[in-house]
Nucleic acid binder design. Structure first.
Length: 733
DNA sequence: CCACTGCCGATTTTT
DNA sequence: TCGGCAGTGG
């Protein structure tokens, strides 16, 4: 009976993938072929048919979202009495798994228990400081570029010395020079960046054979999702853990789109070589898309040379043919998308539709058009909740509490809220810490011996007391209570009010939201050791992304980059900007392998569509403020055998004039700054202008008296106006 | 410590 | 075009 539920409804290939339990297994899971099903059913099979204890199973994913989804779906397969035990199957991202391992055993390789995880912004910030201390011009050597190189080296398990010897070109040389210093400072701060989590986990398992053996025994069965995106460090980790050979990897080389992050497609293509007895199963039955959509996808992807041969077969009826729209320009393209969305909305919910593009900036015209027509949408990703200033500030307090050596966090809160400690004092603390070989917080503890004015000394004293008090009280408080305490003792709300009066409501709401997140964390972890729970909370936040908190129930069209689209599906998909230079991106023109990755991006986009697919491109476009009308259609359209149409005429859009837009909501569109409050209007509003009449406010840019509004008027079309001068009034809806 | 200005640069960003 | 920065001046 149980076999029934675990194996029923699986096709033969899926069944083979689920029941081939011993030995290495590579599952090529084409788009829409039931990949997640296979993984979850396989785990269920291991648990309920083979009788493997749940804590012997490790399932590795790339995103928290994927981990969560698998966990939920596994629970649905559980016999009623087994639910509880299923929870001890270890679902984790690589990074979370490594963080777990290092918290428990990291001391062996010099990682302190309460280490902090640096996010990209922290890293870049640190690198900027180092460049400065080396007198390297941060204009010439862009910190983000250096950070990327170092990150890449780590993901390749290359040491600073390796980078040094391979460095070619001035920027790489600079990166090679910064690398060891960057690492040194991280160690000093008891901090690890994202890739360090992997690097040190590998190092730990290398250093301690006993621990490795223990882990191999514990995780006797390992499953890996999205194997095509594995980088060298991750691969190395897997090889060590899965020396027993019970490794099941699931992936699709055609959907490898993260090589620029160090992912190496060869990991999946040479799995059979690396694990000699590997069984290979190909899932080529597609349950998602119509045949017409799959045909186009195949026509595109077959142009890649570096791929395993396979072709998806539709299990669904043929459906409506995909279409290409050749737009006069970007506005026309946006209008086309909006019109179609409106039309399709009689058949599908907005949340069944999505617009994909190559670059984040490409969302803008679509957003404006959707705002103008009151089409509800959500931009997936964008400025994340966890990147918001107020959230990072409060997080920095927690970081200092959990890890007093975290100088980066300390620097962040040193003068936040403003307490009259300026750059010169900050530099002094930095320097003293440097020469004394201790943390800046340690220096603060000895403020008496610091050579500063009495006034500054007093402020340092107060800061020290404040932090000491917080740290002491943290032992007996929940994370939420600690947060509330930080907010109250620093008078945080007053600080928000003062520095950003217009954005106050927004920011205050974010602080509230953070309380809620802390509450939920406490409920989940049911913690005992408080320091551990602060550490745990900070870790959780560091490893979360904004996508983890999007509300899936809201009825909105999703706007996202092609990278963000992987793993999702929609009834109707719009893939816009299919132009040479955009998709494929210009930077890929010179390289065969990069072009192939662009092609895979295109493929990923196409295969997200269940029923309707719209591909569009424009003949003329504004690029970096310059109008260009020599834009050529993407080669991928030609490869797909899709003729471009006659350039469409500019269509003047009919303003719908109705209700407030859907775009703006707390999480995703928080960019409405001071101006919104100052002038009482925000994007999406129906407004009236004394001369031009009624229209829709599309966008606000610039600040203070330079702030300009982009308005689409019903009668006279689009105009830019200075907010300070234009007397815009909001029309009630 | 801030507000202003002028310059540069501009893919993608699972963690 | 536009946003993020470093450098400047009050």
């Amino acid at each position: 009976m149980e076999t029934q539920s675990v194996l029923s409804d699986l096709n033969p290939a899926q069944k083979e993938a689920v029941t081939t339990v011993e030995g290495p297994l590579l599952v090529f899971a084409g788009a829409g072929s039931g990949k997640t099903r296979v993984i979850t059913h396989r785990i269920a099979y291991l648990l309920y048919e083979i009788g493997i204890p749940p804590d012997n199973i490790l399932a590795v994913t790339f995103t928290n979202k994927a981990a969560r989804e698998m966990q939920t779906r596994l629970l649905r397969l559980a016999p009623p009495d087994r639910e509880a035990s299923d929870r001890s199957v270890f679902f984790a991202t690589y990074h979370r798994f490594c963080a777990w391992l290092l918290r428990a055993y990291g001391q062996v390789v010099g990682v302190q228990k309460h280490f902090t995880i640096f996010d990209d912004a922290d890293s870049v910030h640190l690198i900027r400081q180092i460049l400065k201390s080396f007198n390297l011009d941060s204009g010439l050597y862009r910190p983000a570029a250096i950070a990327a190189m170092i990150d890449r080296a780590k993901n390749d398990l290359r040491s600073p010395a390796d980078l040094q010897s391979q460095a070619d070109g001035p920027v790489q040389k600079a990166a090679a020079k910064v690398f060891p210093e960057y690492d040194r400072r991280l160690r000093e701060m008891n901090a690890l960046d994202f890739s360090d989590l992997l690097v040190f986990a590998v190092k730990l398992l290398d250093t301690s054979p006993a621990l490795l053996r223990q882990m191999q025994e514990k995780f006797a069965y390992i499953l890996v999702d999205e194997y095509q995106d594995t980088n060298i460090a991750q691969y190395s980790l897997l090889r060590k853990l899965a020396a027993h050979g019970n490794l099941c990897v699931v992936g699709d080389d055609d959907q490898a789109i993260y090589s620029w992050r160090g992912a190496d497609i060869r990991n999946i293509l040479s799995f059979e070589k690396d694990f000699p007895n590997a069984r290979v199963v190909k899932l080529e039955e597609n349950y998602r898309s119509t045949q017409g959509i799959l045909d186009i996808a195949y026509q595109v992807i077959r142009h890649n040379r570096d791929r395993a041969d396979k072709r998806l077969q539709a299990t669904r009826h043929s459906g409506q043919a995909p279409m290409v729209y050749t737009a006069a320009d970007g506005y026309d393209e946006a209008a086309f998308v909006a019109r179609q969305v409106r039309e399709l909305s009689s058949e599908w919910a907005y949340s069944d539709m999505a617009v994909f593009y190559r670059m984040t900036a490409q969302s803008r015209l679509i957003e404006e058009e959707f705002l103008a027509r009151a089409i509800p949408y959500v931009v997936v990703s964008g400025v994340g909740f966890y990147e918001r200033r107020e959230v990072k500030d409060l997080l920095a307090y927690l970081r200092v509490i959990a890890n007093p050596a975290d100088d980066a966090a300390f620097t962040r809160i040193l003068n936040v809220p403003k307490r009259g400690i300026g750059e010169s004092t900050a530099a002094l603390l930095r320097e003293s810490a440097r020469s004394a070989g201790c943390s800046q917080l340690d220096i603060l503890a000895r403020f008496d011996s610091i050579d500063v004015s009495p006034a500054v000394k007093k402020r340092l004293h107060e800061l020290h007391d404040l932090l000491t008090d917080l740290r002491n009280s943290s032992a007996s408080l929940s994370v939420e209570e600690i947060l509330r305490r930080i907010v109250s003792v620093t008078d945080f709300f007053a600080y928000l009010e003062k520095t950003d009066p217009a954005g106050f409501d927004e920011r205050a709401a974010n602080v509230q939201e953070l309380y809620t997140v802390a509450q939920e964390f406490a409920r989940r972890s049911g913690g005992s050791d408080q320091t551990a729970s602060v550490t745990g909370f900070v870790e959780e936040l560091s490893l979360l992304t904004d996508a983890d908190r999007l509300d899936p129930d809201a009825d909105r069209v999703s706007l996202m980059t092609l990278h963000a689209a992987k793993g999702l599906e929609f009834s109707a998909v719009f893939l816009i900007g299919l132009e040479e230079g955009s998709l494929p991106h210009a930077s890929a023109f010179e390289s065969q392998s990069e072009l192939e990755e662009e092609r895979r991006l295109c493929y990923v986009g196409i295969t997200r569509a269940k029923d309707r697919l719209f591909l569009s491109h424009a003949c003329s476009r504004r690029i970096y403020g310059e109008s260009r009308d020599d834009i050529r259609a993407s080669r991928f359209l030609e490869e797909a055998g899709l003729p471009e149409g006659e350039p469409a005429r500019r269509v003047s859009s009919d303003p719908t004039g109705s209700i407030r837009s859907g775009g703006s909501d707390r999480i995703e569109r928080m960019a409405l700054d001071e101006e919104t409050a100052a002038y009482g209007v925000s994007p999406g509003d129906r407004i009236r202008h004394p001369v031009f009449g009624a229209g829709v406010l599309l966008r606000i840019s610039g600040r203070a008296e330079n702030a300009t509004a982009m308005v689409r008027f019903d009668r006279v079309g689009k105009k830019r106006l200075r907010l300070a001068n234009a007397r815009l009034s909001r029309l009630d809806e």
